[in-house]
Amino acid sequence: MTVTFLILAGVTIVGMAAAMSLRNLVHCVLSLTLGLVGLAGLFLELDAQFVGFTQILVYVGAVAILAMFAVMMTRGAAQQQESRPTSVRISGVLIAGGVFLVLAWAMCHGLMTLGAPVQPEAEVKQIGVALMRSYVLPLEVIGLLLTAALIGAGVIAMEEKRGAR
């Protein structure tokens, strides 16, 4: 555990926590972005340059902006959120804690069985080969799904426009 890791982990956790707890939705999205940048930094620290930069490109460059757009268009930016009842909060904390425990157990277990850490293999070429050879079917299915979603979004938007006229 190096200093860099601690800083990056801190940034990620603070960003994500702020994303959950801040009142202003735009602030939430901004702190979520901060958390995602921290995550990208963690990838970089693991020498996975491609994954790290893709994380920034996709999440900071596209997803955060889309989330911003969504927030702006739903007029949620200016409104204050009403506080949730205690039961919802407690159940939320319980579920999150449960998920964390399961993940932590899985990771620790994995680390135990794995033994010595292997050199990470996340070179651009390896990723490309993996995507185009062993994972070509999932890739195509996801591509199809996203295209369908895109067309669907277009259809919905056009429908609305016609109704407005």
Binding site: L30, I56, G61
Partner: peptide
């Protein structure tokens, strides 16, 4: 000299959009 230099360029370049949005909002 990064292995993914070009990707780094576009990734960081996309952060400009966020700055623009922050300024505007």
């Amino acid at each position: 000299n990064l292995n993914a230099g070009v990707l780094f360029f576009f990734a960081i370049g996309s952060m400009v959009e966020l700055a623009v949005f922050m300024a505007g909002w």
